[in-house]
Amino acid sequence: MDLNGVSAVVSGGASGLGEATARELAANGVKVVVADLNEDKGKALADELGGVFVKTDVSDASQVEAAVQAAVDTGAPLRIIVNSAGIGWAERTVNRDGAPHSLESYTKVIQVNLIGTFNLMRIGAAAIAKTEPADADGLRGVVINTASIAALEGQTGQLAYSASKGGIVGMTLPAARDLAAIGVRVNTVCPGIIDTPIYGEGEAAEAFKAKLYAPVPFPKRMGKPAEFAHLVRSLIENDYMNGETVRFDGGIRFQPK
């Protein structure tokens, strides 16, 4: 699919993987709606890219609808949805004191990561369905969801996070089959350990990151957000990629802890 002249909604677009994706798309002629809770960073990025910022809690359907409508209102056909908003959580099913995992925290992670992804996918796809086909195959648009390799091999304390990301992987193929009727492709990326600002800066941060990427076979480092964004662009542009879950992890396989 040709990127130039279309619009996109990128959730979690103000930082990390979402920011890198927003930059990659904008650099290739896409009008980007940055959907995020961080107003300061989101507005600054949208202004820099010539896009639009919409404050968005992806677990709130009305806010997701507003973000999608903002893309439609740009006048450029909405053809791209990228779900990269999400939160992490670490808690054992039963902790060392014998207390069960908090239901509130589990529900929150599912609400943001899984239901939030579903919200933008369903509402975005419904808007894409109203556009004219972009090619002879009848393609109207593409949805890229972001899961995690924790969906496939979660570690100790990742119950809620792995469940939420596993749900995203589980939605991929049925969503692709459902949305085929309206010419929308769906793919999911499962990142491994990516170097984002969450790890901080300085010697201590670098030492911590070195421990994290030690099990990566090659290249022996963390992934870069720009590399993730490049993969997203490739999945959008390659018209025969559909219903796939793609690992993006340098070949790492998580240990139990």
Rank of each mutant, 00 (worst) to 15 (best):
S164D: 09
E227P: 05
P191W: 14
L159R: 02
T196M: 04
Y213L: 00
K211F: 04
A229V: 02
A176W: 09
D135N: 15
G223S: 14
I149Q: 02
D249H: 15
A214M: 06
D178T: 12
A214F: 09
P191T: 13
V232S: 06
G251E: 03
G154T: 02
G200N: 06
G223T: 13
I236Q: 00
G202H: 09
T172N: 12
K211T: 08
G141N: 11
Q155L: 06
N187E: 05
G200R: 07
M222H: 09
Y199H: 14
G141L: 10
T146Q: 11
A176S: 15
R185T: 02
Y161F: 15
E206M: 11
L212Y: 01
S234T: 03
P217A: 06
G250H: 12
E244W: 01
R221I: 06
A210I: 02
A160R: 10
V184E: 02
L235Q: 03
G170A: 15
G141W: 12
G202R: 08
E203L: 13
A204Q: 15
Q158F: 13
G167T: 04
N238L: 05
P215Q: 02
V169Y: 03
G170S: 15
Q158S: 15
F254P: 01
G202F: 11
L179K: 01
H230T: 02
P217R: 07
T156F: 13
Y213S: 03
Y199M: 07
A150P: 00
R221T: 11
A210E: 13
T146L: 11
I149G: 04
L152R: 10
A176K: 06
G154V: 01
R221V: 05
Y161D: 02
A175Y: 05
M171R: 03
V186E: 08
K211G: 03
A207D: 11
G157Q: 08
N238G: 01
E201A: 14
G202P: 12
G192I: 03
I168L: 09
A163V: 14
G183M: 10
C190I: 03
S148V: 13
L173K: 14
L231H: 08
A134W: 05
E201H: 14
H230C: 00
T172M: 12
V184Y: 02
G202S: 08
L173P: 03
G192Y: 06
L173Q: 12
E201S: 15
K209I: 04
I193H: 04
P191A: 13
A150I: 00
S164F: 12
C190G: 05
A160D: 12
G154F: 10
F248A: 14
D239S: 08
V184D: 02
P197R: 01
A151D: 09
P174K: 05
